[in-house]
């Protein structure tokens, strides 16, 4: 964490041929070539939501009541499941080391990688959520709240989860450990995400909840890349 002059973020880093877009394009292309990684979290998301009616009760009144929580918990677990692979392949083939050594600001590269991860898991999950809402008898009033809260909440999940992924990237058994580290940190997002849907269901204004979810996202955007970069340097050098 030396204060290297190149660490300073400049406008040129945001140019189309800068490190941010380069990393983003590369990650998107890589996962496009491995389509199973793209689809697996979505299947998992669907399956978790299916387990609840099977495990508890198919009663429509009951399901409508728990639907916001079930969809959110399922989305949270699906994000977590995909988190482990965020830095792993880069770590194994040495790309990560090159990224750390390169003069490009790590902050932007990390942000691009998390954005790519969100575009490939959080965004599809958000788009798929109404389907689960219908399966769980979520009333139509709650749908907009569901999609909007997931749209604002899942990027935060990706950002916070990436900290856990960065801390455990050098370890062989990272999977369970990530959940242990990250799940407690997900609680505020879960609380406000489900609360916003419930507010939408009862006809209350959802603006305040969205503002809080947005505030958490803003805080995550500023702070998480710093923690991720520090964690990556520690994991790779150790």
């Amino acid at each position: 964490m030396t204060n290297h002059p190149a660490e300073k973020i400049a406008v040129r880093d945001l140019k189309v041929d800068g490190p941010f877009w380069g990393a983003l394009k590369r990650d998107l292309l890589l996962s496009y070539r491995r389509k199973s990684d793209l689809i697996n979290p979505l299947i998992f998301f669907l399956m978790v939501a299916t387990l609840f009616p099977l495990g508890v009760s198919p009663d429509s009144v009951f399901l409508a009541e728990v639907a916001p929580g079930v969809v959110w918990v399922a989305a949270l677990l699906a994000t977590l499941l995909s988190m482990d692979s965020l830095f792993r392949s880069d770590f194994e083939d040495g790309t990560l080391e090159q990224l750390l050594l390169s003069p490009q600001p790590l902050f932007m590269v990390v942000l691009a990688k998390v954005l790519a991860h969100w575009m490939l898991t959080g965004l599809p999950l958000t788009l798929m959520a109404p389907l689960l809402g219908v399966m769980l008898f979520l009333p139509a009033d709650g749908m907009s709240g569901l999609v909007l809260s997931l749209l604002l909440g899942t990027p935060t999940l990706s950002l916070v989860g990436a900290i856990g992924a960065a801390l455990t990237v050098g370890l062989r058994k990272g999977g369970v450990l990530i959940s242990l580290l990250v799940l407690p940190l997900y609680i505020p997002v879960l609380i406000f995400g489900t609360a916003s849907i419930q507010a939408a269901l009862t006809g209350l204004p959802v603006g305040g909840y969205m503002a809080i979810l947005g505030a958490m996202l803003a805080l995550g955007l500023i702070m998480a890349p710093l923690a991720i970069s520090a964690a990556l340097r520690i994991s790779v050098s150790g």
């Binding site: 801390l167 580290l181 407690p184 609380i191 702070m223 520690i234």
Partner: peptide, 21 residues
């Protein structure tokens, strides 16, 4: 070092968790 980063992330999160709970 890794636990220090995690503890600091947790420290930033504690007020948020407390408020949300």
């Amino acid at each position: 070092q890794a636990t220090a980063v995690l503890a600091l992330v947790g420290l930033v999160n504690i007020p948020i968790i407390k408020y949300s709970v």
